[in-house]
Design a binder for these strands. Structure first.
Length: 233
DNA sequence: TATTGATCATGC
DNA sequence: GCATGATCAATA
């Protein structure tokens, strides 16, 4: 291959899908090498390595900006770490919970629904026993939350959690709530703090939180995809 | 052992 | 400081 620099962003959805199909079966080492990306020994200090490598390989340019990875296509890229059992090992971060700016939001206009409008899920082997460079990329699926059979559950979870936050109960929310969508801490550490409005209406400090899709849910997304006839080849 | 809560690196 | 990319590691 003469590819020694990151590709330009894909111009069309078809181009993006063709690129991601071409990655299926390759290892992270195969993908990182021509991009001159060093593969870390473990992910403890490089937790974003897999996602960032796939972004680069596919031509995403969003970086850490709050826009979709493929802005012009309206597509968000998410890698799914797949265990030996073939199921996602981890939940999937969606976006930050606007702990102090949820007023006036409904599901239709929520950040969660917008972020999940079109997601390209790319499964990647994540057996801890396998060296990172040897982990293979699987077949991707382009998914839309509005088309998912569990979309009503997604909405119901969002509405329940958003309602609790509006009522000032954010500090009473744990990751146990929500059947498919949950809220968990998402910050530098447990001492990270942001302002919010408490039960009594006063400002108080709380941990920053994020919306996450449960691993059991993304597992069902993959199941449904692979149960279908193969996409046009 | 599945899940929750904590944590890490980087860019702007 | 906040958003991006997530996985780690203690706990239930």
């Amino acid at each position: 291959m003469l590819e020694h620099r990151p590709p330009d962003p894909p111009r069309t959805e078809e181009e993006l899908l063709a690129r991601v199909r071409a990655l299926a079966g390759k290892t992270l080492g195969d993908i990182a090498r021509p991009l001159h990306l060093r593969v870390p020994r473990d992910l403890r200090r490089d937790k974003g390595f897999v996602g960032q490598t796939l972004e680069t390989a596919l031509g995403a340019r969003a970086g850490s900006r709050p826009i979709p990875d493929f802005w012009h296509l309206g597509v968000e890229l998410k890698t799914l770490p797949i265990g030996k059992d073939g199921r996602p090992r981890e939940s999937t971060y969606v976006c930050a919970v606007p702990v102090d700016a949820l007023h006036g939001l409904v599901w239709e206009t929520s950040h969660v629904r917008r972020k999940l409008a079109r997601v390209l899920f790319v499964p990647v082997e994540a057996d801890p026993a396998r060296p990172i460079a040897d982990r293979r990329v699987g077949r991707a699926t382009l998914w839309s939350c509005d088309d998912d059979p569990e979309r009503d559950t997604l909405r119901a979870d969002w509405e329940e959690l958003a309602s609790l936050i509006r009522q000032g109960f954010i500090d009473r929310i744990t990751a146990h709530r929500g059947r498919v969508l949950q809220i968990r801490p998402k910050g530098a550490d447990a001492h990270d703090a942001r302002a919010t409005v408490g039960e009594d209406g006063w400002l108080l400090a709380t941990q920053p939180r994020g919306w996450y899709l449960r691993a059991a849910f993304t597992n069902r997304v993959l199941d449904r995809h692979y149960a279908r006839p193969a996409a046009t080849s």
